[in-house]
């Protein structure tokens, strides 16, 4: 184990990127145990953007735009290693399918959505057309689906496809500003996003793998509020946790009441990027990619 890596204690933690490091902070129920925040990993010469968690091997994956590289480390003792280092320009979003053991990422300069095994092998470009500023990407392992957001100002959209690249469709394109963060809630089969340019948090439900649409009531309510300066968000149980670029804080929101419940200001005041949660359970699922 490397001494600059602090092992994550059992229980759920939030992991978030702050420029040259990944910070960890435990959750007590849904409360952020602020006084127990500490760095998981110091990578001072890198700018870490997105983080994703593999609940099976208990590893954190991240993209860094300075390498550029995609790397991983275990939560128990380090094992820092690069997964992808070639043919990357601005890898900004990352997602793991813990079932099929796949890694997905977006590159906002290559304008691609790509896939590989978790060790970086068998890499393939899934999409390289109709992408301008792809960033956030998430998986729905139970349905073998992939969702990503493109915050292109001339045509922002949230798209979906199967994990093998088939059946690509635009899920949301109306009333979007800067769709920045995406998260998938497996309990409710609900895709949530943060729009930093227009409405705040909104969602659509994945109903048995087919019918999609945004909720008109939610949109009506959202239009009256200010945009939320969100860089990334993660759904965990009844809460959403997001990194806020204005306050340089991690903010907790209760999804039901849509009220902010907590704010965590890290000791170092600098930009926060990706966020994920290391839940103790790994949702049981099976999908066609796991064959």
């Amino acid at each position: 184990p490397r001494p600059d890596v602090h092992p994550v204690a059992p229980g759920t933690h939030l992991l978030f990127a702050q420029s040259g490091k990944i910070e960890q902070v435990p959750l007590d129920g849904y409360n952020i145990k602020k006084e127990e925040a500490k760095p998981l990993l110091h990578i001072p010469d890198r700018v870490v953007i997105a983080v994703a968690y593999d609940c099976v091997e208990k590893k954190v994956y991240w993209t860094d735009i300075t390498g550029p590289a995609i790397s991983r480390a275990s939560l128990s003792g380090g094992d820092v290693s690069h997964v992808v280092t070639t043919d990357l320009q601005s890898p900004e979003g990352i997602a793991v399918d813990h079932v099929a053991r796949l890694l997905f990422w977006t590159d906002s300069m290559r304008d691609t959505v790509e896939v590989s095994k978790l060790d970086g092998s068998q890499r393939q470009v899934l999409f390289d057309t109709d992408l301008v500023n792809p960033r956030a990407i998430v998986t729905n392992p139970a349905y073998g689906r992939l969702y990503w957001a493109d915050w292109n100002r001339d045509g922002p959209k949230i798209e979906m496809s199967n994990m093998d690249g088939t059946e690509r469709v635009v899920l949301v394109k109306d009333d979007l500003g800067l769709p920045n963060g995406l998260t998938f809630d497996p309990d409710n089969q609900q895709l949530c996003w943060a729009d930093a340019g227009k409405t705040p948090l909104a969602s659509v439900r994945d109903s048995q793998g087919g019918v999609y649409g945004s909720s008109p009531q939610a949109e009506e309510a959202d239009r009256r509020r200010d945009p939320v300066p969100v860089r990334a968000l993660i759904s965990f149980g009844r809460n959403l946790y997001y990194t806020d670029w204005r306050r340089e804080a991690v903010v907790a929101v209760d999804r039901q009441s849509e009220k902010e419940t907590e704010e965590f200001l890290p000791q170092k005041r600098s930009r926060l990027y990706g966020i994920t949660a290391t839940s103790t359970q790994c949702p049981q699922a099976y999908n066609y990619c796991s064959d």
């Binding site: 600059d4 420029s19 040259g20 010469d45 170092k268 600098s270 930009r271």
Partner: peptide
Amino acid sequence: VVCTNCPTGTTGKRCELCDDG
């Protein structure tokens, strides 16, 4: 030795790099 709290806008082991942005 790694610097841990570099001044605003800087980063790196010796605060020798500029931060993102």
